[in-house]
Design a protein around this nucleic acid. Sequence first.
DNA 1: CTTGACCCTGTAGTCACTACAGGGTTTAGC
DNA 2: GCTAAACCCTGTAGTGACTACAGGGTCAAG
Lengths: 138, 138
Amino acid sequence: MQQKLTIGMLSKQSDVKVETIRYYERSGLLPIPTRSASGYRYYDGEDVKRLRFIRRGRSLGFGLEEIRSLLQLADQPQQPCHEADQLVQAHLAEVDAKIRDLQAIRNVLEQLAGCQSQTAAHCRLLEALEERVCCSTR
Amino acid sequence: MQQKLTIGMLSKQSDVKVETIRYYERSGLLPIPTRSASGYRYYDGEDVKRLRFIRRGRSLGFGLEEIRSLLQLADQPQQPCHEADQLVQAHLAEVDAKIRDLQAIRNVLEQLAGCQSQTAAHCRLLEALEERVCCSTR
DNA sequence: CTTGACCCTGTAGTCACTACAGGGTTTAGC
DNA sequence: GCTAAACCCTGTAGTGACTACAGGGTCAAG
């Protein structure tokens, strides 16, 4: 049951790079693993689970500190998950804000794209950045 | 005409922090300014323009290297702006990709938000991260 | 003449990795 | 038994775009 995985195997099973795994260990997100006589790290199925948990959290855009909190919550199944929900709500609000920001940027860029000007002097983008008013605004 | 601005005044007129101005100078985005006898940097109207150009570029999400290219293009008004348009198009594609990523994240978060579970053991978020299947999916 | 607001340099910290350099270990094939 | 490839180790430095000191010097007002 206690399969011994090297860091490379753990990397493949969790889809997290070897260097990143060591980084997570340094950051205290992963427990300090046992070692072989020659110093190789050994992992087991629990580590795979934990690392996948981290990866999924990251892919949802949570920061490592938020994930640290979530890991603690997950280790205490009796406690209410109010705190986890707060993290979700706060993160959702952040993501929404970022989307809005990017869409505003997107709208401006779209207007600037497709400039065919022969000279930079009349380039839509450069005009916009220099706040010149010329022929760019429609 | 040759108004002498201190870095603090330039900062206010351009809405860029003092430390950031010095950072841009180190990065070669701003020309090396003249100095007072005691070593204070002096700026003029051209610097205000250039710095605002950079700030607007940043607010559209361009990186400093892209802005460096754009500044060069802006300095050569005779040249065609093909390159500037390429930068816009490439950046637009990047922004679109980011928006898509964030919207996918947003959709997941929305489903996870509002969890009222009394115990972390049944928390929607924790289930999702652990890839447990329980009561969360609907 | 002192107080406070400004300015200087240089360095280190942020975030989440990523990329070496310079080694040691294990494994597969011959 | 030997060699080469593929793996592992530590430690440090780099990424982008700032931001935040520490530890000083300068200037203007009252």
